[in-house]
Design a protein around this nucleic acid. Structure first.
Lengths: 241, 241
DNA sequence: GCAAAAGTGTTCACATTACACCCATGG
DNA sequence: CCATGGGTGTAATGTGAACACTTTTGC
């Protein structure tokens, strides 16, 4: 929630030409999450913008005049990662007066969930780099705010919708799934209870295959069954704050 | 979640002057919720825009060049309802190419929770009217989308944060509180379980006063104790979808 | 007295939690 | 053989859901 930031006089009586309004640019910024080596990561790019040169920033771009905002986000993802059909969710729009040195630029933040392995090869641009989320302390512009807002949204989301599977390969072990939840939520979970929970949900299909590249007893590989999953689920209606 | 809406060629190779970008206007639209006579209501205004003249629309306005987006929302609320310190939450930004006849206008949707009784007197403008949420079937522009998106967000929100008290007078009966939850969630709740729930949360203070204008046995009046309420609450971390 | 809502406890089903041992594999 | 994680079950606790009768007030 936001409370009124400051008292301002009602300036409704001062007419302003309509043309003065159409001087805003809009951009989108994407927080692209990945999961690798048990760590939640974010794809960042070296900023080539004067005031912030050398700092890392989120991937973003201005929205073209003939372009929908969602389209712009997909374009950025496609251009930067080579990935096409990815999970994308709009989170918040940031419009502080001085957030951008070039003028009034409003940005709409999205987050995206991608499978890092899938596009490792496409990531040849050495201006791009995956950073562990926990180690990101400072970014260009107001991107640190944007990052934290998107992360908070992701934390809520994974509890209510099966979006985490976008971060995993199609076949995954239960340990991978659990450590992904732990990485996103920042907590440790009980292994037996976690397994019980997911099995009784009934959305995991045993592929019959096993891990084969681990230095310990291999686990079974599962697949998320999108067909069995339906949003009809009876979420208990509990008021809880 | 949004999936890529349509395949588009990568037009990154077509240079566009930076000036072409700064031709967008931004607006804010507010879904102002109130609660009256057991019914969830929304404040609407008669649209005076050509293409939609005579239809109802949300309260909105262009964001001024020197104005923060949140400020713009508070300005609209102040101008239209006379209310100042209200609950306001940003929800989503709508930016379809042809959503506004005048050109590229991106709008950011907010919802607001107000106590109808508090400003009944300030509402003299007869272009403004409180509509029962359930009876709103058609609005100007894409405002029906905006309304539904904000309503869905409100439904989620009331389960996790004590925002409903913004819709009630400072002193309220448990029946009022319950019927408000029922109106927002669209379900019937068990009275005894509801009372138990709220009392054991410990955030309701007995004012010692009773209702005095009801045609039946009066109930006690309570106040929400913001001091006792802290976000430290131990929400059970349950994955549930 | 009648209508309408206030106020009040218990039971059942289910979900979350905590917890310990043996097994399979790689090195 | 050792380290690492895979795989498994049960008991206790807590929460949500269902449910009925008496009391108080206005009319």
């Amino acid at each position: 929630m936001t409370r009124r930031p400051s008292a301002r006089p009602n300036i409704n009586t001062t007419p302003i030409s309509i043309d003065n309004y159409f001087k805003v640019a809009i951009s989108v910024d994407c927080v692209i999450f990945g999961f690798d080596e048990g760590v939640l990561k974010v794809l960042l790019i070296k900023c080539n913008f004067n005031e912030f040169r050398g700092q890392w920033s989120l991937l973003g771009d201005l929205v073209r005049p003939d372009e929908d905002m969602d389209e712009a986000s997909y374009r950025i993802l496609r251009e930067r990662t080579g990935l096409d059909d990815v999970y994308l969710e709009q989170v918040h729009t940031f419009g502080s007066l001085n957030r951008h040195p070039s003028g009034r630029v409003i940005t709409t933040a999205y987050y995206s969930l991608v499978n890092i392995q899938h596009h490792k090869l496409a990531l040849s641009d050495n201006e791009l780099h995956w950073h562990p989320f926990d180690e990101i302390k400072c970014l260009a512009f107001d991107h640190m705010d944007i990052l934290n807002t998107c992360y908070a949204r992701l934390q809520q989301k994974v509890l209510r919708e099966p979006v985490v599977f976008n971060l995993l390969p199609p076949k995954f072990s239960l340990r991978e799934l659990q450590s992904l939840y732990e990485a996103i939520l920042g907590v440790e979970l009980d292994r037996r209870n976690f397994r019980k929970k997911f099995f009784q949900m009934g959305f995991l299909t045993d592929t019959g295959q096993m891990e084969d590249d681990v230095p310990h007893r291999p686990g079974k590989l599962y697949r998320f069954n999108y067909k069995k999953y339906t949003k009809q689920s009876k979420k208990p209606l509990d008021i809880n704050f």
